[in-house]
Amino acid sequence: MNQLTIPIIFYIFAAITVLSAAFVVFSKNVIYSAFSLLFTFFGVAALYVFLSADFIAVTQVVVYVGGILVLLLFGVMFTNTIMQTELKADVLHIVPGVLLTLVLIGGLLLAFYNASAAGQWMPGMMQLQGSVVERIGFETMSRYMLPFEMVSIVLLVALLGAAFLARYDKAHKKEH
């Protein structure tokens, strides 16, 4: 019973992730894609919990679902106000695209399975166990101090740049 429950839960979340990602990609309606992306992000967060990265899972839910998805939905609403009927998004060259995707996935899986069957990727002696929050705190304040500060500055500059780019430009409008 206990031996079987964890694989079953894993496969349920894996199926949710992959199927909703496929729906994001193949759906004709942009709104459906955006809402399907919600399930993908939650499924990926659940997979992070399986990888004993609980802090990353919570960050995933807060940043992706709370921030990026809302931003994308805002973009969908904003760019479709004028052409209400044209909410659909076409697909360009679907057959070569599907072929290339299958080749890509097949090649990646072949490389992964060969490397792990040849014993190049043996699991280490010490795997991550339990909660990882405390170790993230230690690493952030010691080894990863400079990347941490740099990424905060990058985030600040990117948000300022985004606000500047998306600003409503009156002078631009007057020319036309």
Binding site: A21, A22, L108
Partner: peptide
């Protein structure tokens, strides 16, 4: 799972 997600995103 990651290879499948990567392929779908690439598509």
């Amino acid at each position: 799972i990651s290879a499948i997600l990567f392929g779908l995103g690439m598509f």
